[in-house]
């Protein structure tokens, strides 16, 4: 009798061990695709579930931290404040594998300061931005990563320049920056694994279409706006069950992706000729892609030599949280000498 044998990873765990609670996000949401890729990456990399600290801020994206690795501690903090909470957690216990999920509102607006300073300190964590250019939970306002001229569900078109969080990260001296697309598991899973392996902040800027509020007419300038006027227009209180968008294309090539509302984005996968150790080349790639209305995906920049926060702070190898108080107090002799000096 044939029994289906579950495939186990190096730790003897199967993929289900990395799953979490059922998603409450909209069907077809790019964030759910990313969650599946996170599960696969953590499973493939055989990370001890109990050592994972799942961190998030506030927003649709930040809910996702509950949807993977049920047996890991999670912290759904406050809007834009995840980097500081993650910094504290890592300092307290440097054995933790700190894994953060944020969104474009959480990272590029309310949390932009903390995002910048996390990168500056090179906190050892994986930091995924589920980037859809829109505030989903508050029903469709433009975010700071929305393209100039794109139109939210209600209200005027976005009049302001977008903040490119990948370019910003590189400018700030990030040690690992990649951009990907929620539907591209073939590219995203290895990138997450690489970020996990990297000792420093692994920034993953993942374009993740919002099925409900993604109404960015002309979000990429070079491709004509295409829209099926007969398609049901989603209202905030009725979410049509939509399929997730997936892509599969080769490095060095481009792919036109139609989003749920009929608009298009053009992804361009970084080819083998790009030297990811070259910071200037990474910036050039991002700027050139923006000029041509494309979204360049892949590993943009990596510097494996950059010291992470715990190294810079010369932290002891044992977790601070586990040091007994006796090791933290001066000796009685030291104390008496200190007091004598004050007399």
């Amino acid at each position: 009798m044939a029994v289906a044998i579950e495939k186990l990873n190096r730790l003897g765990l199967n993929r289900d061990d990395y799953k979490g609670a059922h998603t409450t996000l909209c069907a077809g949401c790019g964030h759910n695709s990313i969650t599946n890729h996170i599960v696969k990456a953590l499973y493939d990399s055989a990370i001890e579930p109990h050592l994972i600290a799942k961190m998030s801020g506030i927003g649709c994206s930040s809910k996702a931290a509950a949807y993977f690795v049920e047996h890991a501690h999670g912290f759904n903090g406050a809007h834009g404040r995840m980097p500081s909470l993650a910094t504290g957690a890592k300092l307290a216990n440097r054995d933790l594998v700190v894994f953060g999920v944020s969104g474009d509102g959480d990272t590029a607006s309310i949390g932009l300061g903390q995002y910048c300073h996390m990168i500056r300190r090179n906190l050892d964590m994986t930091y995924i931005i589920e980037n859809n250019g829109v505030y989903g939970l508050t029903k469709g306002q433009s975010s700071a990563t929305a393209d100039l001229g794109s139109r939210p569900k209600r209200g005027p078109a976005n009049r302001y320049e977008q903040i490119d969080i990948s370019a910003l990260a590189i400018e700030l001296g990030a040690s690992f920056v990649a951009r990907s697309f929620s539907g591209d598991g073939k590219q995203l899973v290895p990138l997450i694994q690489a970020a996990l392996a990297h000792r420093g902040t692994g920034v993953l800027d993942v374009i993740s279409p919002c099925v409900t509020f993604n109404d960015h007419e002309g979000s990429t300038k070079s491709y004509a706006y295409v829209k099926d006027h007969d398609a049901p227009v989603n209202t905030p209180d009725y979410i049509a069950p939509l399929e997730e968008i997936t892509v599969d294309y080769e490095p060095g090539t481009g792919q036109d992706v139609e989003l749920h509302d009929g608009s298009h984005i053009l992804l361009r996968k970084i080819g083998p000729d790009h030297d990811a150790r070259d910071r200037m080349a990474a910036m050039r790639l991002l700027f050139e892609a923006r000029q041509s209305g494309e979204i360049v995906t892949g590993l943009l920049y990596v510097n494996p030599e950059a010291d992470d926060l715990c190294t810079r702070e010369a932290l002891t190898s044992r977790p601070l949280a586990q040091l007994p108080v006796e090791e933290l107090r001066p000796s009685r002799e030291q104390w008496d000498a200190l007091m004598a000096g004050l007399a």
Binding site: P83, S84, T87, L91, A92, Q114, H117
Partner: peptide, 29 residues
């Protein structure tokens, strides 16, 4: 090697965030 971490944060929002993150993970902060 140091048996402490002292972070001059970017603002007080981050300072209390780091404290809460550290306490959540079991360190006195």
């Amino acid at each position: 090697e140091r048996r402490f971490a002292a972070i001059q944060a970017e603002d007080e929002l981050a300072a209390i965030g780091i404290v809460l993150g550290a306490e959540w993970a079991g360190a006195r902060a």
